[in-house]
Amino acid sequence: MTEHSEVLNQGETHAAHVHRDDEGSKMAMWLFLFTELLLFGGLFLLYGAYRFEYADGFKVAAAEMNSFIGAVNTIILLTSSLSVALSIAAMQRNQKKLALAMLWFTILCGIGFLINKYFEWSHEIHNGVYPGGPGLENMSNGEVLYFGLYYVMTGLHGLHVIIGLIFISFIMVFIARDKITSTNFQKLENAGLYWHLVDVIWIFLFPLFYLLH
């Protein structure tokens, strides 16, 4: 509201500068999500190409994956997506505390996801399964490529989880300081969009890397 009244007070001349454009902000966020989608898109394309070429090697390699941890992580991310959505709904209803609580929950989910990932990776690295590692020496080309892509794609995804957590932390500070309110919450909405994108990418990574039997 404050920004709106500013616009009114200062008259028409400077509207373009002061004017808050939620729709434009959302549009920019979507365009940014497209760039993220295509960033991962290149990797998905590589995955598709190599899976096409080395179908058997991929199956052998995927057999070593623990699909239970993958499924747990999927549920964690889906739940965190729910809590972000609920946080926006709470913000709309001016329930600041609930909105903050939901974001705290989201952050916990994100950290839980990363901890799972950490154990998963360290288990594999312990077994020598990493690019250039001893575990890959006797493997076929398909398996080596599978693990190469596995590390790059889940690694890049993990990086996005971390960025998302930082993004959400900033948003929580804004909410606590009343910079984000029930009438001015596009920033929260954008953080939500980002977090959902991270979720969507995982929705595809999960079956591609864990459910190949």
Binding site: L46, Y151, V152
Partner: peptide
């Protein structure tokens, strides 16, 4: 040395050119 483009590890250099 993740191998995605390295022919020695099974990678396909033509895919690099595509991308």
């Amino acid at each position: 040395g993740i191998g995605v483009f390295d022919p020695a590890l099974g990678g396909d250099p033509i895919l690099y050119q595509h991308l």
